[in-house]
């Protein structure tokens, strides 16, 4: 690899560097601009709130990152989170303890992870359509639990206390999620397991020929996606102190944008956990800063969509240049 990169002319290597890190520069520029235009953007309270949201969203998008990196897709993740959120809220409202309720929420996530895994990895059915269907199923069960409306909770139990804990100035949950991402980075970039994930996207048949149990890996990835999504759903139940059956819709575009935009930074189109984390923080910051600046939802939506489109275009352009 190093022998190859050494042959690349200096100028192109510079362009390559810019492609990889342009997104981080953009994030820095945008955040500094928000801070200058609206000083409230950088008050401790606001940063704390943003870190909380980014941690929960980051948790939800972790499994999705690896699935997309492996060349599969899961569009049921946000509905699974909504289902876990509603199951937890319903159990708490029913008088159960938070421990049992959280387990119930996680159980729902594991169940949907297993369903996706057996249908896509086990039976080799098309991932996009299957997860559209399982996502709709999870969303409708979530709505059915609350009979179409949300469930308000009067206590947030130990989950709420954990969310309230701080390590120094940082919320504990942000530290935990950051640790989780560090471990995931190590697994994806330094262990063979992670290399197989990248390899599966390139040439599935070759990886199978190499003797890698591809189906078992895919199975694990889908279950993992269900678990982290439902974990985020349980945390949201405490964070919002309610069960929201429709919270999935707001995470759908954000999740795919975070993973794909993050993949375009750093690895030129290969989803990776660091990219996802940076993009998640960026999207949360954009939401927050845009609200402070008084932008409408639609303007933010257009910024987000354009970024995704420009990002994917740049990556394809860069890759085609490199081949020739």
């Amino acid at each position: 690899m190093s022998a190859l990169t050494a042959d690349i002319p200096q100028r192109r290597r510079g362009a390559d560097f810019l492609m990889r890190y342009a997104f981080f520069i953009l994030v820095a520029v945008v955040f500094v601009a928000f801070a200058i235009l609206r000083p409230t953007f950088v008050t401790p309270g606001n940063i704390h709130g943003m870190l909380m949201s980014a941690s929960i969203a980051g948790l939800m998008f972790l499994g999705l990152t690896w699935l997309i990196a492996a060349g599969e897709i899961d569009v049921s993740f946000m509905s699974v989170a909504a289902l876990a959120n509603m199951v937890t809220a319903a159990l708490v409202q029913d008088g159960q303890g938070w421990a049992l309720a959280s387990l119930g929420g996680l159980g729902a996530g594991v169940a949907f992870g297993l369903v996706n895994a057996s249908l896509v990895a086990g039976l080799r059915l098309p991932a996009l359509v299957i997860t559209i269907a399982t996502g709709a199923l999870a969303a409708s069960i979530a709505a059915a639990i609350g009979l179409g409306t949300s469930i308000a909770l009067n206590n947030t139990g130990f989950v709420g206390q954990v969310l309230g804990l701080r390590v120094g100035v940082l919320p504990l949950i942000a530290v935990i999620v950051a640790g989780l991402y560090a471990v995931s980075w190590f697994v994806q970039e330094r262990l063979t397991f992670g290399h197989y994930i990248y390899a599966m996207e390139q040439n599935r048949a070759a990886v199978v020929e190499a003797g890698v149990p591809v189906n078992r890996m895919l199975f694990m990835l889908f279950v993992l996606s269900g678990v982290v999504s439902s974990l985020a759903g349980v945390l949201l139940a405490a964070n919002l102190s309610s069960g929201q059956p429709y919270l999935g819709t707001s995470y759908f575009l954000d999740g795919l944008t975070a993973v794909l935009l993050g993949g375009m930074a750093l690895k030129l189109g290969k989803p990776n956990v660091l990219g996802t984390l940076a993009a998640t923080i960026f999207l949360i910051g954009l939401l927050n800063g845009a609200a402070l600046l008084g932008w409408t939802d639609s303007q933010r939506q257009i910024v987000r969509g354009s970024l995704l489109l420009v990002g994917v275009g740049l990556v394809v352009f860069a890759r085609s240049r490199r081949k020739t």
Partner: peptide, 25 residues
């Protein structure tokens, strides 16, 4: 975008769909 410039279909259509929703407001 997909046929001429070889962009991946799922990502591209998610992005253009998001843009369209934004414009509809």
């Amino acid at each position: 975008a997909v046929a001429r410039f070889g962009l991946p279909d799922i990502v591209t259509t998610i992005a253009t769909g998001g843009l369209a929703v934004g414009f509809s407001y």
